[in-house]
């Protein structure tokens, strides 16, 4: 994964804030992943435009004190990719 890669949610999957659960959830056919706060914050930024570098920059702005944020984000995205939650955007 390099910082110029652009990821999007898997087609047909949806990220949503659930007030009743006070967290983001990732919805997919007949199922749901309940996300912790940092996973929600990262996935929320995958708008199909921002690349990994821009996602990290946006989070850095939001959490200026966050230690090891860059590595955490890359690690999480690699995991999300392995789980099949996200996909690399095909070249336009």
């Amino acid at each position: 994964m390099n910082d110029a890669s652009v990821y999007t949610l898997r087609p047909g999957w949806r990220l949503q804030w659930e007030q009743a659960q006070e967290r983001h959830v990732l919805l997919y056919p007949e199922g749901m992943v309940q996300l912790n706060a940092s996973a929600g914050a990262v996935l929320e930024l995958l708008d199909g435009e921002r690349d990994v570098g821009a996602v990290i920059a946006a989070l850095r702005e939001r959490f200026p004190e966050g230690e090891g944020l860059e590595d955490d984000v890359r690690e999480f995205l690699a995991e999300a990719l392995a789980q099949g939650w996200i996909r690399e955007r095909e070249a336009p």
Binding site: Q16, E18, A20, Q21, V25, L27, E30, G31, M32
Partner: peptide, 8 residues
């Protein structure tokens, strides 16, 4: 309103 989110 009760919190259900998946609907079949």
């Amino acid at each position: 309103a009760m919190g259900a989110v998946q609907l079949g």
